[in-house]
Amino acid sequence: MTTDISTGMEQADVHEEIQPGDPSTEVEAPVVEDTAVKALNAVLIRAAVANRNAERFNKVDEAAKADVVRVLGRKGSLPVMNPLNADEEFVQITVSKLTYTAKVVDPSASKEWVKERYADKVEKQTRLMPGTTEQHVFNVLKQFAPYLLEEVDVVPDHVINELALKSRLAQRPMGFGGEVGVDAPPGIVVEPSAPKVYVTFRNPSVVDDLIVSGIVDMEGNMLGGDE
């Protein structure tokens, strides 16, 4: 006995039902997020933003300190009152005092100036005649062939250092005898020190309170016209 198990579907119909690639039969694979890559990218973005903010606030800091130097002057120092509490000095702002540095930028010119004006600062030094290069026989030559040697006038380095020190104290190029201006020793430059502003907090949390209260912005500018 034969059992009819026909589905009533034609052969082509069966093939169409199971045809590979048919969107109606495909199961979408779940999208797996690469959390490790995203986390790494987030860290790098945070570093980039922090770096940019640091550059921005460094410029704000420099500008604010320049204003402090302008209003306080060198060696100036004042406490800062808390706008939220008139009795509290929450920070001290101090500007460094003015100092000078002197450096020798042209030692040859400075030494020639010393030779012309201060013979007592010049010392005798023995050296090989030009063209004689056998340094290792220097002592031998000095004893047995002195005609190959000559004595010359030289200005020792310590003398030039003395000039630099005197110039620093005078706050301008100056000679041993007080020569300045056109008579000053050449080759010496005297420069004033750059001002430094020191911020000494007594209660740093006040800054956060001022920002939260809307009294200053993130750059420290007073808001609402209050000065």
Rank of each mutant, 00 (worst) to 15 (best):
F144N: 15
P146F: 03
V37K: 14
G214R: 08
A119G: 07
E17T: 07
I215K: 04
V32L: 07
P79L: 03
G8E: 05
D106T: 04
P195Y: 05
P83R: 00
A184L: 07
I18G: 05
E134K: 10
D67T: 13
P173V: 02
I18N: 08
V182I: 13
E62T: 12
D87V: 04
A29G: 07
D67N: 14
V190T: 02
I93L: 15
N82W: 00
I5M: 10
G181K: 01
K97A: 15
R46L: 08
D4W: 01
T126I: 11
P195D: 02
D106E: 10
N139D: 15
Y100F: 07
D61T: 08
S167M: 01
D34A: 06
M218E: 12
E62H: 10
E16M: 13
K196R: 12
T94Q: 15
T99R: 13
V122W: 01
V212D: 15
T133W: 08
S6Q: 09
R46K: 14
T133D: 08
V154T: 10
E88K: 00
D226I: 13
K103I: 00
V71D: 13
F138C: 07
V152I: 15
D217V: 07
F90K: 03
M1K: 12
A48Q: 13
A194I: 09
F138N: 06
F201G: 10
E116A: 14
F90C: 00
G224W: 03
N58V: 03
T99V: 08
V68H: 04
K142Q: 15
R52K: 11
V180H: 03
T35K: 12
G214K: 06
R117N: 15
H136M: 06
T132M: 12
P185W: 00
F57D: 15
E116M: 07
E116C: 04
Q11L: 15
A63T: 09
R56L: 11
K97W: 06
E219I: 09
V140W: 12
F57A: 09
E134R: 13
V182Y: 09
E191G: 03
G187M: 05
A64S: 14
E116W: 03
Q92T: 15
G220I: 06
A42N: 11
E88P: 00
G73P: 02
F201V: 08
V71Y: 14
E227C: 09
Y147K: 11
E227T: 15
S110T: 14
A48P: 06
Y118H: 14
L165Q: 05
V180Y: 01
M1N: 10
D209C: 03
K59V: 11
P83K: 00
V159W: 02
E10I: 05
A64N: 14
Q143L: 10
M222F: 11
I93Q: 12
G214P: 08
T94A: 14
G73V: 01
V154F: 06
T133K: 14
V49M: 07
A170G: 05
I93C: 09
N85Y: 00
D208Y: 08
V207R: 10
V207A: 13
F57L: 14
K111S: 07
K65S: 11
S213L: 04
M222C: 10
E179K: 03
V31Q: 10
T7F: 10
F144Y: 14
Q143Y: 09
P146E: 08
T35W: 12
G131M: 00
G225D: 01
E150D: 11
P107G: 08
